[in-house]
Design a protein around this nucleic acid. Structure first.
Length: 417
RNA sequence: GCGGUCGUAGCUCAGUCGGUAGAGCCCUGGAUUGUGAUUCCAGUUGUCGCGAGUUCAAAUCUCGUCGAUCGCCCCA
């Protein structure tokens, strides 16, 4: 038997019910804020991701699904959504219609070792906002994310963590301070962090090794070394969050893994997913559009992991798809044509009806009717077909009555209320 | 890419010291030749993840491999 490839999986009908509501709520809530859906391709030129996400990021260096197409161009399955949104923004000239507010949802691909809440094909719902440079936008994005999560039933146990990563004006100086501090403690760092010293010293801050955590705690933190502009942006953001009474936690050790972030970075975390504690994450990327060849354009965005949302929804998970309202038992060869026509007329009245298509004896079909979860079973046998009637059985009470086929849609409609 | 644990029926699992595989649920038929919980009777379910090795004999021991899971790394 051919099985699915590692790290990907089927979302079966029972679980898909949950996915549909998670997606529908996203459309609804983001719509309340004036965001519209953007659908981008799931594959792009490799170069797009390499430049947007960062040539030296782990995602680009070792996690991308890249392959040559038939003409030899390097194509990649998208590892995240922002790069394509930025590309679309520039390509379609939305720089002239600011602010541009979009959301997207769909599969992303990263070649990683699968784990709880982490798959090679995973799904994100994300939002991006281009244009505004003040902290009002940051605050609204966070409010929107939290409102959405609360709306789908995840308000409990989530923490909004945020930090400022500074900007090109203040980060280099901070980085030097941090590096010289870390040099003095180099002996005490874990081996991994020692090798990170040159490449990306900021990432040492969120190392989980106990020794490194202590060192990180007392290290100089970016938020104490922000330039005036970054500082007032950060202060403004906090004031807006307070104004909305949105609880948050400043995490001076939070460092995002993608290269394009500046100033505001935030994560929404949970303690219930093992090592994968982030359900949503995002931040500002004011330089990305310019780096990609567009004009200077402030922007902010975030993305949520749908698998993680659905996992957290946990026990609310449905394991069976919704039941039909009516189940139709077809008993006898003469009844088939009549039953099928009756079924069509009932569906025409907007009633969900499932016809038994597999035949079998009455007992067998009634079992299937009960199992389907239908509230009412309509039985049409040869006898009923000849009389142009049907037996209508209310499953819960067991009451059964004969109704003419012509009246069936209306009667069912009122009985189902 | 690295480490721990685990892979037996569609599902949940048992299987002793190595002796050629079981239960419950589900499913099918019947008791009831046209009526669903329950009950009773009968029946089907298997590459014991895959491949090699040791052995008279392997679900069981060894090695490899694939997959799941947990942690590292990284991230949604």
């Amino acid at each position: 038997m051919i099985r699915v490839i590692r790290g990907v999986r089927d979302i079966l009908p029972g679980e898909a019910v949950q996915w549909q509501s998670v997606e529908a709520e996203a459309r609804r809530i983001f719509g309340l804020y004036g965001f519209h859906e953007l659908r981008t391709p799931i594959m792009e030129r490799t170069e797009l991701f390499a430049r947007a996400v960062g040539e030296t990021s782990d995602i680009v260096e070792k996690e991308m699904y890249s392959f040559p197409d038939r003409k030899g161009a390097s194509i990649s399955l998208r590892p995240e959504g922002t790069a394509s949104v930025v590309r679309s923004f520039m390509e379609n000239g939305f720089e002239r219609q600011l602010p541009w507010k979009v959301f997207y949802m769909g599969p992303m691909f990263r070649y990683e070792r699968p784990q709880k809440g982490r798959y090679r094909q995973f799904h994100q719902i994300g939002c991006e906002l281009f244009g505004p440079q003040g902290p009002l936008a940051d605050a609204e994005m966070m409010a929107m994310a939290m409102r959405y999560l609360g709306q789908i039933g995840l308000a409990e146990g989530l923490t909004l963590e945020l930090n400022s990563l500074g900007c090109p004006a203040c980060r280099p100086a901070y980085r030097e301070k941090l590096t010289s501090y870390l040099e003095s403690k180099k002996e005490a760092l874990c081996g991994h962090c020692q090798s990170r010293m040159d490449r990306n010293p900021l990432r040492i801050l969120d190392c989980k090794t106990p020794g490194c955590r202590e060192i990180a705690q007392s290290a100089p933190h970016m938020k104490e070394h922000l330039c005036d502009d970054c500082q007032s942006h950060f202060d403004g953001l906090l004031a807006h969050l307070d104004g909305m009474q949105l609880p948050y936690q400043i995490n001076p050790l939070m460092v995002r893994g993608l290269d394009y972030y500046n100033r505001t970075a935030f994560e929404i975390t949970t303690g219930d997913l093992g090592a994968q504690n982030a359900v949503a994450a995002g931040g500002r990327y004011d330089r990305l559009v310019a780096d990609m060849g567009g004009r200077a354009m402030p922007a902010i965005g975030f993305a949520m992991g749908v698998e993680r949302l659905v996992l957290l929804l946990g026990e609310q998970n449905q394991t069976t798809p919704p039941a039909p309202s009516v189940y139709m038992v077809v008993a006898g060869p003469e009844a088939e044509a009549v039953a099928l026509a009756a079924a069509e007329s009932i569906r025409g009245a907007d009633i969900t009806l499932e016809v038994n298509l597999q035949g079998g004896g009455m007992r067998n079909q009634m079992k299937k009717a009960a199992r389907s979860g239908a509230a009412i079973t309509v039985i049409i046998g040869d006898h009923e077909a000849a009389q142009k009637v049907a037996q209508c059985k209310v499953m819960e009470s067991g009451e059964q009555q004969e109704i003419s086929l012509a009246d069936l849609p209306e009667r069912l409609k009122s009985d189902l209320k």
